[in-house]
Design a protein around this nucleic acid. Structure first.
Lengths: 231, 231
DNA sequence: GACCCTACCGAACGTTCGTTAGGGTGGCAA
DNA sequence: TTGCCACCCTAACGAACGTTCGGTAGGGTC
């Protein structure tokens, strides 16, 4: 309920700062690209800017990444970026929205299938979050490390979607662990978020599988790392 | 056990804007360490620069915080900062060293007392880490959020001490949860770090006690958030 | 008084920043 | 053919950046 799904695939309207459509187009193009078609799609320039900027923002930081550096990475001149984005802030805003959309859809997919056991349900959602985190790594991980230092205007534009996503997790964990009090539940939720999101800084999806990571984290969170018996 | 001895005993500090921090112990150590040059360095002004810079780096980010902004916060002119620090990088380096020293000493204190139960031992160390995290908040939290985007030279200078601290935790958790395999142990350790350190972004030590936070996190990590059930 | 030292300042340096103005393509629609 | 439009360019703007330099006030030491 909290999240809005009325995206649609209508590429018609283009209101100066109308962003959701382009996000949808972006995700569609990414899916098409990953499906095998390596041909440069129309509107390719903007997405290449987004990709390069997200990667640079993530590795270097927002303020440390200049427009000129992004332009060099794409292979164009700095002024050309302003044909696709009104300013640097809007570039980061769009990246954050793409990342939020990715994890939100992953939550949808995980919620669609309903495992019986609470532990399995938790693990499925943890796996969905982590897979989205690394599948669209540059866009989702930006939420973890870059967001805290983003300009206030950018943070304010992204905070609503973030709150919605956290609310979905709060509801889920409330059902999974009904015995926990609200305070403990809130701490457990935020600690779980910290544990999962911190993995973008130390987990390499090329050496291990995200499924293994998800099961390890989910198992620890579900049953703890000390075998039952000790008080 | 927590090391907060000389908070307000001396009327030496005359300013109301500075955050009360017990960094004098650190400065004594630095003076003893650099005894070769023979410069005693009383350093009241330097201390205020460190406090203001740490707070600004933490809230705004490193690149986003200008030397002029730090100088304004302290009440001096930008050029005066270069009397105490060779450049901006060295300012961040020193802040990171102070933060690392704080958590490392907290680990020492926690290790000095040896509780019998693994769960109690874990909780004591979690509490020690979290208390250091919030007692020297601006200096320790900088390691969490600012470090990833610090200039490479600064990161390289701080990475050794960070590795040492992580190794101490790895040994501790290996003793607490000997049944876990190395891979699972590593993930559990890093996930625990992510959970604890993320609290600097959502926990307010003024509304709740860090001890409650520590027990909540430690209990979740030790026994999980799902009551004893089949996996 | 001569000398040194710490702490700070005013003024400026050269560089990089985000951003804008204006011009030139090539392709597609009429 | 003409006109438009998406796209990218060169060139430059003012502002802010980290940093340096020469200088000064004050205090301690012989």
């Amino acid at each position: 309920m909290p999240n809005e799904r009325s995206v649609g695939s209508d590429p018609g309207s283009r209101d100066a700062t109308s962003i959701p459509e382009s996000i949808d187009a972006y995700l569609a193009d990414v899916a098409a690209f990953e499906a095998g078609s390596g041909t440069p799609a129309p509107g390719d320039g903007k997405q290449r800017i987004l990709d390069a900027a997200a990667e640079l923002f993530l590795t270097r930081g927002y303020a440390e990444t200049s427009i000129r550096l992004i332009a060099d990475a794409v292979g164009i001149k700095p002024a050309s970026i302003y044909h696709h984005f009104t300013n640097k802030d809007s570039l980061l805003t769009e990246i954050l929205e793409i990342g939020m959309l990715a994890v939100d859809r992953a939550f949808d997919d995980a919620a669609a299938s309903t495992p019986p056991e609470p532990a399995d349900r938790l693990e499925r959602h943890v796996a969905a979050h982590l897979e989205a985190l690394f599948a669209h790594h540059a866009f989702t991980a930006t939420h973890v490390t870059v967001f805290p230092f983003a300009p206030p205007a950018v943070r304010n534009a992204a905070v609503a979607a973030r709150d919605d996503y956290e609310a979905r997790w709060a509801e889920l964990l409330g059902e999974i662990a009904p015995q926990l009090e609200p305070d403990a539940l809130r701490i457990a939720r935020l600690a779980l978020f910290g544990a999962m999101n911190s993995s973008v800084q130390w987990f390499d999806p090329k050496t291990s599988s995200t499924a293994d990571l998800a099961s390890a984290i989910a198992r620890t969170v579900a049953h703890g790392m000390i075998p039952t018996g000790a008080s």
